[in-house]
Write a protein that binds this DNA or RNA. Structure first.
Lengths: 238, 238
DNA sequence: ATTACTATTTCCCGAGTAA
DNA sequence: TTTACTCGGGAAATAGTAA
């Protein structure tokens, strides 16, 4: 909370100590230590906060107590509700790119019954046997692709059949061009780079949308904000 | 949000415009107008925020775009979660005072079947026919009494019987001395002042706790924070 | 011990202006 | 048009210290 102003921090400090509902004993020195400011500054800020109507201070004999006023509560609530509105709304993550023709590997895998069954069950539709390959054009899309790969929560299991190992994948549902329900498939150990996504859908998207190589398309994923923040901060915290 | 620092406000401004998940076109002048600061200050603060790692700015040809970094998101989340912890925890509202003997009016009313039935149904216990009167000793308790009267959500209806009108009341459940489950009864048009509360309980509290006139007691109400803030701000907003 | 005044230093804002 | 530099004035922080 490095960017918060001292006054805001003081209100938060007091509120933490229950000064929303009762008068709380608080010395200027204590406050100063907690906020890493000088005792003098703490004193001045308390005076100002009282003048501005955010807190009330009273003496009970020698003991000095501080309580937030309704205005003080209001200040905290305003900030809280503003942030809540921003941080808890679902987030649209958008990937833009151009259609290109791949090696038809996707089509091959989609015909393997073990995969097909899983896709059908977990995606809620029977995928057309072929993937639409999209090469992402800008840095934001590529960043978002990396993010989405972490957020993708539909897991397709791999398997072995004695001869070889078939890898797994992760999917996430999305909209193509705001119209078509699709799933982005993140294949484990794909031979494509991070600038490519593969998309599956119930129908042949090329036919349905008249797409040709080089056409621009965009894919949107609506993520509950909680997921996104967990994903976005997972690495940051570590 | 008068107490927030400019930098915090900038992050919020950007986040509102979706700069958490994509790069957003933002000119320094626009930002300056929104935050009521000078264009120069806006420029300087953006530079600093970038140096400090809260945002990233890029040029796409002539267009300049800004996006929050994970650190920027983290800053907002930190503040949000801190405030959430404070503002959404249940709040204990405490009233302290001394027992005194009233006019036994409470006892009279509690014997009227129309009232008695309501108390029994709505409080979840059959009240001992008599109220414990408590005179509040300090300003905080009196303030909290006024607040609680507004927050009291158990409504006892009044009635007429041809001869006269019997007034209504509002109650709220509480703990006396952290032990006894009681209800504070706020009688409409009481003849007591705002420094008095009346309490009912399943048993005779004076006997059970060995209370005499002048003994100190305290009554605690645990309020879901939402209720409290609605009540606390109802007047303030108006 | 605790608060808060005064003096000094540091930092921040915004005007002017260049690129 | 937009960004961002320099610089002067003023606000804010701390030190010293009184009450």
């Amino acid at each position: 909370m490095a960017l918060l102003g001292h006054k805001e921090k003081i209100l938060i400090f007091l509120a933490k100590r229950n000064a929303l509902s009762e008068s709380v004993e608080t010395s200027t020195l204590e406050l100063a230590k907690a906020l890493k400011i000088s005792q003098q500054t703490a004193s001045r800020l308390l005076i100002q906060l009282e003048e501005e109507g955010y807190i009330v201070r009273r003496r009970y004999g020698k003991v000095r107590r501080v309580k937030l006023t309704e205005r003080g509560l209001r200040e905290l609530l305003d900030v809280y509700l503003t942030l809540k509105g921003i941080l808890e709304r679902p987030i649209e993550v958008k990937l833009e790119g151009r259609v290109f023709t791949g090696l038809s590997e996707g089509a091959y895998y989609l015909q393997i019954p073990y995969y097909l069954r899983q896709f059908e069950e977990k995606l809620g539709f029977k995928p057309y046997p072929g993937t639409l390959n999209i090469r992402l054009m800008d840095r934001d899309s590529i960043m978002n692709r990396i993010l989405l790969e972490k957020a993708a929560d539909i897991r397709i299991e791999g398997f072995k059949d004695g001869k070889r190992t078939y890898g797994g994948a992760k999917c996430i549902l999305a909209k193509l061009n705001d119209r078509e329900t699709v799933a982005i498939v993140f294949i484990e150990r794909t031979h494509y780079g991070e600038d490519v996504i593969e998309v599956v859908a119930p129908t042949c998207l090329r036919e349905r949308l008249g797409l040709r190589d080089g056409d621009r398309v965009y894919v949107c994923v609506k993520l509950p904000s909680k997921n996104l923040y967990q994903v976005a901060l997972r690495d940051y915290r570590a």
